[in-house]
Amino acid sequence: MIGDIINIIKDYWLLLLIGQYPNGPLGGLANTLILSALSIALAFPVSILLALARLSKWGLLRWPVTALVYITRGVPLLMLILWSYFLVPLLTGADVPSFYTMLTTLVIYQGAFLSEVVRAGIVALGPGQMDAARALGHSYMGAMRFIILPQALYNMIPSMISTFVATIKDTTLGYVINVPDLTFAASQVNNQLLTQPFQVFLILAAVYYAICWSLTHVANVIERRIARKRAGVVSRQSPASLAQVKVITEQP
């Protein structure tokens, strides 16, 4: 059993690492890491913009984004992926590589989820911080940037990491539209071996676990470093203030 696994790695490590590259598209673990990193790096700023839009006083900004969040939350990611894969070429006639279809879908999907985390972080601060910033003359966006978001994002690090980890795991769904990632490479290996699916997919699981665990570990280190910088004080708001959802919708 362990011997099988070692043999598989020995024979196929290059395929699992970079796919068919350089004879074909880059794939394997390298592509999974690139797809994950890009998804997270793009979904994070998108989520902040979506959260701010959902808290905006302008309905024109608030309603479309609210609709987007509700729809993405209510539809399985797999359906969204298949839709974008089949619909976008049909509507535009453009031949979009599956990698970009996957990336865009993931950014929208995880951006919507993450925006709810960010919004919760902002709302949970309570109205007092925004009041204080406005009373001192800060603009709404200035207050967000220097007062509200630094606290809200910090408080939400654990939830954000969960979403980031989910993003990494969701890249595996690219398999259904032939994104050449690690899962795709593993199934190629499995198709060649035919008799050792358990061993092949155990390797796959172990690699994903290692990636997600590393991210969690890095996040914990960052969180501790910020906590130390803030002298471990960040006083938690009373539960009562959580109820005041009125907050931070933009005021003139």
Partner: peptide, 11 residues
């Protein structure tokens, strides 16, 4: 403006 709950910026 000085608030009842101070509203200092804790970060």
């Amino acid at each position: 403006f000085v608030f009842q709950n101070f509203n200092l910026f804790p970060h």
